[in-house]
Design a protein around this nucleic acid. Structure first.
Length: 432
DNA sequence: AAATAACTCAACCGCTGTGAA
DNA sequence: GTTCACAGCGGTTGAGTTATT
């Protein structure tokens, strides 16, 4: 039995782009009568269109609850992760992105995300980093790699179940479900967090008051309206497109990440946090500025996060084992939609008592612009701070050693992108 | 300024699943 | 059990737009 044509081919029906008048007719009819039978709708609505065409126009474009416009970082992440789990099941993916249509997501994937992954050396089908890839390894890559592929069916079932639930009400996050499903996997990030809570917080408390690590996503909601005492915070700006070349970004291939990323992600509140890539800078390509940082005692390479909707061009919140104690009010380039205003801060760690710097960036024009102000924005950091920081470093060393047998390395701390937030919303060196 | 290439995304095509008759 | 209409889905197209030469 052949399939019957969806529309009567004897009648000349219009195809192609819809006119405003047609849109108006369709909207008016549906608002008044509902769509009912799509097959019969065109005639009733006075449209020389196939019912199927009307349905598509309505569901993909005219429906009042459709969100249009640029996809957010968070949406990007969700799409990529769900695609890794669900494949090209666009409607299932769309069910987790409120007000986005499957068609829009499909288009966005095909025109943006797929390309972006390829450019980063990641197979957009398998979501695995290709052997030749020397580009950024996104933080969402691990989530979809080894651990998840072992549980694909389970995850897929979860996703489907939740997709169904989402038809009825606002669902809990699929990803939180996924993460929850992996709780049997032990992971060093938990160890780190425990260590932080029991040791580092106490150490810092006398100097900072209550100091806690904030998941990255929460920082976005932190109220910085209380101005921090000046001149302790330096906010520098950088044309972000220079960062990749300046830093010589290289892939961080980490067995640890492969194994534990999903759990680590849970710690930082994934998927709401916007950090989505991690890299390890290649020391011999670093600028002098970053060499200084990476060659400091402990010899820790510089780690950082890349974020934003133009993956790979934004740099956010560098951190290394010693820079995790970055002062509060460190800035973010996420959420603004304008990456050109990404700010950047770093703790300098040459010696106890040294200064808190925001480093001028590599761009010559920029450096010149800020050469005068940067000198005046240093503040003295007392010994106690560096002691606390050293304490944190030692904990991280423990962490590193603990996982050496599992093929891990210092990369393991990568998902732990936290900020130190002290009471009052400001980093006040006078409190020392 | 013009030609061309690249990109975007609305719309279409054809298939599958579902449920009613 | 079969037929059929219909909704929904994913793949693909191509007109329009934007970027590049």
């Amino acid at each position: 039995m052949g399939r019957a044509p969806c529309c009567d081919e004897r009648v000349a029906l219009k195809k192609g782009p819809w006119t405003p008048d047609e849109d108006q007719k369709l909207v008016a009819y549906i608002q008044k009568h509902g769509h009912g039978s799509w097959r019969h709708l065109p005639e009733k609505a006075g449209l020389a269109r196939c019912g199927k065409s009307c349905r598509l126009r309505w569901t993909n474009y005219l429906r009042p609850d459709i969100k249009r416009g640029r996809f957010t970082n968070e949406e990007d992440q969700i799409i990529i992760q769900l695609h890794a789990i669900l494949g090209n099941r666009w409607s299932a993916i769309a069910s987790h992105l409120p007000r986005r249509t499957d068609n829009e997501i499909k288009n966005y994937w095909n025109t943006h995300l797929k390309k972006r992954l390829s450019q980063m050396g990641i197979d957009p089908v398998t979501h695995k980093t290709s052997s030749a890839g020397l580009a950024l390894a996104p933080a969402w890559t691990p989530l979809v790699s080894t651990q998840l592929t072992h549980n694909t069916q389970w995850h897929s079932a979860l996703a489907e179940a939740e997709a169904r639930l989402s038809q009825l009400s606002a669902p809990p996050s699929l990803l939180s479900e996924l993460q929850g499903s992996a709780t049997t996997v032990p992971h060093p990030s938990a160890y780190f967090m425990r260590s932080w809570k029991t040791k580092v917080e106490d150490t810092l408390r006398p100097a900072f008051g209550t100091v806690k690590l904030e998941p990255h996503r929460e920082r976005l909601n932190i109220d910085y309206s209380t101005p921090a005492p000046t001149p302790n915070i330096t906010r520098l700006q950088k044309p972000l497109q220079d960062w990749n070349t300046a830093l010589g970004i290289q892939t961080t291939a980490s067995p640890f990440l492969e194994k534990y990323a999903a759990m680590a992600m849970k710690d930082i509140g994934f998927p709401s946090q916007t950090t989505n890539s991690v890299f390890q800078s290649k020391p011999d390509l670093l600028s002098d500025m970053f060499k200084e940082i990476s060659e400091r005692p402990g010899n820790h390479p510089v780690f950082g996060f890349v974020t934003d909707d133009q993956l790979g061009v934004g740099l956010e919140n560098h951190f290394s084992p010693t820079s995790i104690l970055q002062g509060p009010d460190s800035d973010s380039c996420s959420g603004s939609g304008d990456n050109s205003d990404c700010n950047f801060e770093f703790l300098h760690h040459d010696a106890p008592g040294s200064s808190y710097h925001s480093f001028p960036l590599i761009d010559g024009e920029y450096a010149a612009e800020h050469a005068q102000t940067s000198a005046s924005m240093s503040v003295d950091i007392p010994e106690s701070f560096w002691q606390a920081e050293q304490h944190a470093v030692s904990l991280l060393e423990d962490l590193k050693n603990m996982d050496a047998s599992e093929g891990g390395g210092l990369e393991m701390i990568v998902p732990l992108s936290f900020d130190v937030v002290s009471n009052g919303g400001g980093f006040d060196p006078s409190q020392f």
